[in-house]
């Protein structure tokens, strides 16, 4: 073993050369590549992390969207149900109203018919009663009856209330026209005198009186003075009878209506109207 200076220095140089060469060909390259790879891997990881986050965000967004859609759908369904329910109710109501209207129309028609029928019945009844009575009374009429009629008329004149008497008095006093006494038969002079007397007593003064006869007054007598009229006749009674019959019939109809229950306002109104007639 001995130190050889040339070899020693050559080895130092050799070593320095190999350090430089290896640094250039080995370490730098390998480290660069490893760093690159590391960087790439970390980039990949970061990318993966980012895309994972993105995916998560997307997922969240979609979930939220789907929740929204669900709730919207529920809302719409509910709304549609409500609308359908409302529509159904409306339809039912409409149908009910239509039915009621038809019912009312039908009832009104029925009532109209009834009314018309009753009217006709009443008129015909009245006419029949009137005709019958008139015929009967005409057949029965004789002097005694006429006498009696005049008697009743005079009694009536005497029994007039103060108001009526004052009215007649003022009417007769104001006019120059004669007081007309009409009857269905010829009045004999004696009776004429009695009537004149009764009238004079009534109006406390003598007034001209004209006598006349007319077939219209069925078995009766009437007094006219300046538009005022005082009468007694079977015709009046008969008219009264007709009115009463119709009144009774009206009441019957009203009873039927109220017992049938749900008569609508129109029919009631018409009923009332009829009642007042």
């Amino acid at each position: 073993m001995q130190m050889d200076w040339f070899t020693f220095i050559a080895q130092v140089v050799n070593f320095l050369i190999i350090v430089v060469l290896l640094k250039r060909f080995l370490y730098d390259r390998i480290i660069t590549v490893m760093d690159k790879r590391e960087k790439r891997i970390s980039e990949r990881l970061q990318e993966a992390e980012e895309s994972r986050k993105q995916a998560e965000d997307e997922k969240d967004r979609f979930e939220e969207k789907s929740r929204d859609l669900d709730s919207q759908r529920q809302e719409r369904l509910k709304k549609a149900e409500e609308e359908a329910e409302a529509e159904r109710k409306q339809l039912v109501q409409q149908a009910r109203a239509e039915i009621e209207q038809q019912q009312a129309q039908w009832r009104e028609a029925l009532q109209q018919e009834q009314k018309a029928f009753m009217q006709e019945l009443r008129q015909s009844l009245g006419r029949q009663v009137y005709a019958l009575s008139r015929e009967l009374l005409q057949d029965l009429a004789n002097e005694d009856l006429e006498h009696r009629i005049i008697h009743v008329f005079i009694e009536r004149l005497q029994e007039l209330g103060d108001d009526e008497r004052d009215e007649i008095m003022s009417v007769v006093a104001d006019s120059d026209e004669p007081v007309m006494i009409r009857s269905s038969f010829e009045i004999i002079d004696e009776q004429r005198q009695a009537i004149k007397q009764a009238l004079a007593e009534l109006i406390k003064k003598n007034h001209e009186v004209q006598f006349d006869s007319s077939e219209d007054l069925i078995c009766g007598i009437e007094m006219r003075a300046n538009g005022r009229k005082l009468s007694w006749s079977v015709g009046g009674y008969l008219q009264n009878v007709e009115e009463r019959i119709s009144e009774v019939l009206k009441q019957e109809i009203a009873k039927e209506d109220s017992s049938s229950g749900k008569a609508d306002k129109n029919s009631k109104a018409s009923e009332k109207k009829r009642g007042t007639n």
Binding site: T7, A10, Q11, N14, L21, L26, R29, I30, V33
Partner: peptide
């Protein structure tokens, strides 16, 4: 000594060069 040092050096450099010629990332 010097000759075999060169051999070692040559081996090291050649292997390094060959391998690092086309490195894969």
């Amino acid at each position: 000594t010097i000759l075999f040092s060169w051999v070692v050096m040559a081996l090291l450099v050649i292997i390094s060069w060959l391998v690092t010629r086309n490195l894969s990332v």
